[in-house]
Nucleic acid binder design. Structure first.
Length: 424
DNA sequence: TCTCCACAGGAAATTGGGGGTT
DNA sequence: AACCCCCAATTTCCTGTGGAGA
């Protein structure tokens, strides 16, 4: 039996490899010094008794946006507490709320918690205008300077009136600053012109980390997390030196993979920690490049699997038609043939059989999530044109994850066994 | 080169379900 | 309970189109 001691050989502080900021929060972000300086100047007026500038922060996921803002606002709050400056920071997670309305209720709830302590219910059943007024009233009551951080504001979609109302607050007893954070670069373009001019006066962009920065980030975490791991380096450069459990090229490789993709630090960390776990599972003393590559393939499989499982039954049916076609060597397959299969499936499992247009949309949805590939071809005189679809993932992965759906498992198994018989 | 047509897919209308208020 | 509003999914309506065959 495995003992729990063996983990100690590898890890000092396993949490340091966790991509999740809830689990491990770095004390500073050296790679984001410039951006945080900009944020600093936007907030500086508070220290001089003025009103902070509204800020909009852009950048893809895993660039330290949320954490960076947290570090800076915490620092500011600490300073304010020490110097008896009346400052309140409210952090609203917009993720999960698809409308301004929902975000507003969250905001009011959090503002009330400032005064009444935790456990206040979200206000329900009010008009949007009333809610805005409620928010402003709360702010007046709280007084001083109020900093509202709206994280992942792109979640609210088109419906941006909260961003229109908030910066226009006309408060007597309070000063309001708004910090908006978004992953979606398009979000800015879609914003109402008025909103952009008021909220977007200051825009700070977190550009994706490059391979070198990622290397430093990963190295710093690895030093904390892993035993006998040391890196030589100034602030500028971490170079793998005598590393107890990591082979020299492991971190650069993880960094390179992550940089190649989206420059997401979380992604890099996930890859690194999975590589380490993999080596542990295989009872290898050190983590090597091959572990990293295997871990990457594993992550990729998981990702595909998850995206298949997350699809609706209808989309799964559509996917299954292409999977079967691929198994029979009939890909790329034409829409009309696939639609026939689809109708059969629907009858077999007693699902709603939608019209062809809807089915086509399912296929295109699958294309957008990268599971299928689409091509257009003409079919000749009097025969119009058609799309052809091909599978972009292995049939095995597809079968496995499709059969995880209770409604489809029988159907999938039938198709698989038909296939096995016909190859005999 | 032009034609022809079955399919492609955007726009608008419809449906259906969940939330709320009165 | 009756009603309204909102949203997402689906259907209906419609115009656009590739390329083999005339």
């Amino acid at each position: 039996m495995r003992t729990f001691d063996e983990a100690d050989k590898l890890y000092d502080d396993i949490d340091a490899l966790e991509p999740d900021t809830e689990t491990y929060r770095p004390k500073d972000l050296p790679e984001r010094e410039d951006e945080l300086d900009e944020l600093h100047s936007a907030l500086e007026p508070i220290a001089r008794g003025g009103t902070p500038r509204d800020v909009l922060i852009y950048g893809p996921t895993g660039q330290g946006k949320t954490h960076g803002v947290k570090l800076k606002t915490d620092q500011l709050q600490e300073w304010a507490d020490r110097n008896d400056v009346d400052l309140t920071t409210v952090n609203v997670q917009c993720k999960g709320s698809d409308k301004s309305y929902n975000v507003l209720t969250l905001l009011v709830k959090q503002l009330r918690e400032v005064r009444f302590g935790p456990g206040v219910d979200k206000p329900v059943g009010h008009q949007r205008k009333t809610l805005v007024e409620m928010a402003f009233e709360e702010m007046e009551e709280i007084g001083g300077t109020i900093l509202v951080v709206l994280d992942e504001i792109d979640a609210i979609g088109e419906d941006d009136y909260i961003l229109y109302e908030l910066p226009r607050a006309n408060l007597d007893d309070a000063k309001l600053g708004v910090i908006g954070i978004t992953n979606d670069l398009q979000f800015r373009d879609n914003l109402d012109a008025d909103v952009r001019s008021s909220l977007g006066k200051r825009e700070i962009t977190f550009h994706p980390y490059d391979a070198n920065q990622l290397k430093n980030i990963l190295a710093r975490r690895a030093v904390k997390a892993l035993r006998d791991t040391e890196f030589e380096g100034s602030e500028e450069k971490f170079t793998a030196l005598e590393s107890g459990v990591l082979k020299d090229d492991v971190i650069p490789l993880c960094a390179a993979f992550a940089a190649q993709d989206t420059g997401d630090a979380r992604q890099g960390l996930r890859l690194l920690s999975r590589s380490v776990e993999l080596s542990k599972k295989e009872n290898d003393e050190i983590v090597t490049e091959s572990h990293v590559r295997k871990a990457k393939a594993g992550i990729e499989r998981d990702r595909v699997g998850q995206s298949i499982r997350a699809e609706t039954t209808q989309r799964k049916l559509a996917l299954l038609t292409v999977v079967e076609a691929a198994e029979n060597g009939e890909t790329p397959a034409e829409t009309s043939d696939l639609y026939e299969k689809y109708s059969d499936y629907c009858e077999a499992i007693d699902a709603d059989n939608y019209i062809d247009h809807t089915f086509r949309e399912k296929l295109n949805d699958l294309e957008h999530s990268g599971l299928l590939e689409k091509n257009r071809t003409g079919r000749g005189h009097g025969k119009g044109m058609t799309n052809t679809y091909d599978l972009q993932v292995s049939t095995e992965t597809a079968f496995e994850n499709l059969s995880a759906d209770g409604r489809l498992s029988k159907l999938v198994e039938n198709i698989r066994s038909d296939r096995r018989q016909s190859t005999l």
